[in-house]
Design a protein around this nucleic acid. Structure first.
Length: 274
DNA sequence: CCTCCATCCTGTGGGC
DNA sequence: TGCCCACAGGATGGAG
């Protein structure tokens, strides 16, 4: 569920509690949550006692820059969320990771589906484990670089936008919203886009993500995204196509259509998108 | 290298 | 109301 805007919202809310704070205690409660390290216990051993200088984000990954060479990596997967609480606060179901800071705050990671993970990597491991293109929001490549990556590709543009090695951060919702804004059908082969279409897609990414972040992300359901403060995102009301099958296009009134591309639901306006 | 597909999980929302 | 099942915002590894 969480895509770049939800991850950025999470990062911004966690930062004041973690930056320039020391992790005095850490605990992995569910082995799957620590699976990206050789041994889940490595996460705890490496994190304990470390000072967190800064919280960064690359695509959908939150990166804690530690005082050593290590990087604390957090990924929300499909159902992950963080909570900032006091140690005495009651624990909710699916709490799979806990860290306590020297200020006495507790950062808890809740993840029912366990697709998310918490890891601590050396520089070499980080390089090997995170194969990411440039960040879609703060480091978006210029059109020629983007075009070069799509050149010759036969896969649908939608699938290519979801490929984190090309550009990091877009997920199923925002990829559809970007393509609507660009006026490009999700089924179009990436390599077949004209230069002008490529420019439109590229120029749509920034504003869509910016609006998503400003709204605090998108929450689709009751069990959907929640910020570390427990708030839902408000971007759902602003969506043009995602989840709107059969509803009138907000631009032209034509019913929005749904189809499956690369195993993912895709929504588009048959009239506005060519 | 590219494309497609299955897989890892639990919760829920819609249809009957 | 209750039951069942398709489906869910992601990433990866393997087959072809």
């Amino acid at each position: 569920m969480p895509e770049l805007p939800e991850v950025e919202t999470t990062r911004r809310l966690l930062a004041p509690y973690l930056e320039e704070r020391r992790i005095v205690e850490a605990e992995i409660r569910h082995p799957r949550t620590g699976r990206r390290n050789e041994n889940p216990q490595d996460v705890v051993d490496r994190l304990k006692g470390q000072l967190v200088h800064r919280l960064d984000r690359h695509g959908k990954f939150i990166l804690g820059r530690l005082e050593s060479e290590l990087t604390w990596v957090m990924h929300l997967g499909m159902s992950g969320r963080f909570l900032i609480v006091s140690p005495e606060d009651q624990e909710i179901a699916h709490t799979h990771f806990i860290a306590r800071t020297d200020r006495g705050d507790e950062i808890r990671f809740i993840d029912p589906r366990t697709f998310g993970f918490i890891a601590v990597f050396t520089p070499d491991e980080l390089e090997a484990e995170l194969r990411l293109g440039r960040d879609a929001f703060i480091d978006l490549p210029r059109t020629p670089q983007l075009a070069a990556r799509l050149n010759g590709r036969k896969a649908p543009i939608k699938s290519l936008l979801l490929d984190q090695r090309i550009v990091a951060g877009l997920g199923n919702i925002y990829a559809d919203e970007v393509l609507f804004r660009a006026g490009v059908r999700p089924t179009r082969r990436g390599g077949d886009l004209s230069g002008q279409e490529m420019t439109k897609v590229r120029k749509a990414i920034g504003p869509i993500l910016k609006a998503g972040i400003a709204a605090g992300g998108t929450s689709l359901s009751k069990s959907g995204y929640r910020s570390p403060e427990g708030r839902s995102g408000e971007y759902r009301r602003k969506l043009f196509v995602y989840g709107r099958e059969g509803d009138p296009c907000r631009r032209c009134g034509t019913p929005i259509e749904r189809l499956v591309i690369g195993g993912r639901s895709s929504f588009y306006c048959p009239d506005c998108q060519v």
